[in-house]
Design a protein around this nucleic acid. Sequence first.
DNA 1: ATAGCGCCCTGGTGGC
DNA 2: TGCCACCAGGGCGCTA
Length: 284
Amino acid sequence: MPELPEVETVRRQLAEALPGRTVVDVAVSLPRTLQNATPEELRAFVVGRAFADVGRRGKYLLLSLHDGRANGAATAGDHRQLVVHLRMTGRLTVIEAAAPLPPHTRVVFSLDDGRQLRFADVRTFGTIHLVGRGKQGPRGLQELGPEPLDDGFTPEALAAAVRSRRAPVKTVLLDQRRVAGLGNIYVDEALHMAGIHPQRPALQLTGDELARLHAAVRAVLREAVEQGGTTIRDYVDGNGVPGGFQRRLRVYGRAGEACPCCGGPIERLRVAGRGTHVCPRCQR
DNA sequence: ATAGCGCCCTGGTGGC
DNA sequence: TGCCACCAGGGCGCTA
């Protein structure tokens, strides 16, 4: 499941491959992937334009386009962007156009270097929004909380996000309006690293616990980015390669196995409707 | 405002 | 072997 580290890994690879490449064709085989446009509108939006910066906010990928003219400068007032969310099983890869088209390919952008940017998605939850030319991006993007790896994300910023929430701390951390980019895997990992039980009401956390949680969130995300993300089943990066962080998981998907800290059995429960992995001895 | 829940969707899994 | 119920879960819309 792509969360911040997986999306960031894909972003870095797309940032190598896409800038300067002009879109020469686009094919849509699952129109509802496009949340606010028809396939025809997407075509008019991108064909003849060139990709520019590849950005990320939370779990959203931001693919900017400029007008593709000689100097490469964006035309003032005509900023166009594709906003992609991979959700559960979305994949965004760049590959030679001659490579076999895998099943569940939903949208294909043909580029001027003989390669293609392909969006594939088994479960069809993934989304693409157009932004610019009167098109609005997803609401979730506008309401996104702070980036946890930014310098501005201090322990105080986490405390502010969590303050006065009665909900379980896991629920709050999963809320993208509070902190951007965390999903089920890294929330479980960070809470274990911080020694905090996922069901603790967020407003109960002490200053010391918030400081530990802040450090744990950043540490786990940084290490996961270094490892190229986590592959449980579906995730691959922009080159089709799985991540490596699954080897470093402490609790996620390890119910019944030994806790790396105390050796006791890891338990599985449900919090916020999500499968949740916890060491009841280490996490209070 | 907030919290909880169902829905979307498909492939893999496990039980019989 | 075949069948089927069940599970994974991010974001969103709905309800209380």
